[in-house]
């Protein structure tokens, strides 16, 4: 009986075995890259709003503190979106006729809230509380980036679970002194070794739970 396959087809067989493994790994790698990409996470994507509100102008140029508008950030789960009357504190006199502010004036006169588009949308199966983070030493810019330089706000972090865990596993790398929480210029990357040591002591003074508790499922999925 003559051979059906020529001797050279052995090479093909070997290639397909190697290829199957290679293609599988490549496919997994591509899938992982896609799931981390901003196409999936929404990171870096500027979100247009019903009013052309610029955080850069209000906090960067005018120096208004985050908490002037986001009043509940230190006391509640939600940082708080200001009511239209807070806008009107200043804008009843400043830029009072500007067409940009027409939706704000309409909202103020009708009592119908402005419908802002959410930028940071965590999945509904995640519990997140602003106040605990702010009070334990996590600053605004650690998660939100340089909002004071954003004319249009975008999501500066991936908000994926591995990103959350990066800090929950090693909070000493990210926590900062209590008087720097709202300081937009404070940068974790600029921390010196001494400051990381300082971070370790902050973890103690702020009574931050050990990583075992912080990475427990029910800490965030409750």
């Amino acid at each position: 009986m003559p051979q059906i396959f020529h001797h050279s087809t052995n090479a093909l067989a070997k290639t397909t075995i190697f290829g199957a493994i290679f293609i599988l790994v490549a496919a997994l790698w591509v899938a992982a890259e896609i799931s981390r990409s901003s196409w999936n996470t929404g990171q870096w994507v500027e979100i247009q709003q019903p009013v052309q509100f610029s955080h850069k102008h209000h906090t960067g140029d005018d120096g208004i503190d985050c908490r002037y508008c986001h009043t509940s950030v230190e006391t509640a789960a939600s940082a708080g979106i200001p009511s239209t009357s807070v806008c009107m504190n200043c804008h009843k006199q400043i830029w009072a006729d500007s067409p940009y502010l027409q939706p704000v004036r309409a909202s103020f006169s009708t009592g119908k809230p402005l419908e802002w588009t959410r930028v940071h949308d965590l999945p509904d199966y995640v519990y997140f509380n602003h106040s605990i983070h702010v009070n334990k030493g996590v600053g605004c810019s650690t998660c939100h980036g340089r909002v004071d330089q954003m004319p249009v706000v975008y999501q500066a972090s991936s908000l994926q679970m591995e990103w959350c865990l990066g800090c929950h596993r090693a909070p000493e790398k990210f926590v900062r002194p209590q008087d720097k929480i709202f300081d937009m210029e404070w940068r974790q990357e600029n921390k010196t070794t001494a400051e990381i040591k300082d971070g370790k002591s902050l973890v103690n003074t702020n009574h931050i739970q050990p990583a075992k508790v912080l990475t427990s499922c029910s800490t965030c999925h409750r």
Partner: peptide
């Protein structure tokens, strides 16, 4: 699961 029909702060209804 990502978006559950429940009331959360500032969510419309």
């Amino acid at each position: 699961m990502q978006d559950q029909p429940k009331a959360k702060p500032f969510r419309s209804s």
